[in-house]
Amino acid sequence: MTDTPMLNEWYPVGILTQLTKAGRDTLLMGEAINVACDSLGAPVVSAEDGRTLPVRARYGHVWTSLGSPTKELFDIPEADQPGRRLVDVGVVRVKCSPLRAVENFLDIAHFPFVHTDILGAEPHTEVQRYEVQIREEVDEVWATKVKFYQPQAAKSAAGGITTDYMYRVPAPTVSILYKTCPPRPGEWDVITLFVQPMAEDLCQVWPWMALFDDQTPMTDLIHFQQMIFLQDRSILENQLPRLLPLDPGMEIPTRADMTSVAYRRWLKRHGFTYGAQLVAA
């Protein structure tokens, strides 16, 4: 088993409402684990050698770690805000590095081309300057003042609007997106990407949402997000190299890629290299 600082982090491995006593076998950073629930329905995760792993039940998902985490799972205050609908979108398996899956989720320049006429459309392709920083006090990557014109920003949006975004990376394979909420100006809809690193080039993505939207049926909310993510998957499984390069020697990051560069710097500083490529191909 690889010994990397990433061992002592929390990772999503299942949806709380879908646990069974027999449990489901899956992979976490190359090690086989079983994700089940006890007679009271509480989640239980055991490793291949039989040892039980630490567990947290948060944001609709089961979280575990192969190591011993030094801090609690990150906080999403909006998750406990009354009036929000909490949506477990499901799971999508992707043959790419878990870090690539997160990096893609931090990028808006691809909206007009990958999510055409939904999250973006030509000719509205310019990415305005925005701000990115690593917030030292919480040790998280934050991108703020991100603006983008969108034909249909969310199921609840009637027409095209200029959408405001914030992006947050609270853990190596987790990315949280805060976006303008059409029915509730001043509030943010929360869309997250919880990524389970199965191997360095294989992951499972568990999207989760906390939205203000009382009209749209649950299945439509789920299909909307799954469709978006399946569009991303065809990109993620065709990027070379498959691992995430921490040295952009073979790439040309531009200002629109600022969040991706900050994320890679943050990974580099922490030695979070599982799924990363250290030397430019």
Partner: peptide
């Protein structure tokens, strides 16, 4: 730019564009 396969791109006139960021 970021290593996406160009064979997934689109042709317009005399140019080929990458599907990821265009």
């Amino acid at each position: 730019h970021r290593g996406m396969r160009l064979s997934h791109g689109f042709v317009r006139g005399e140019s080929l564009s990458c599907i990821y960021h265009g």
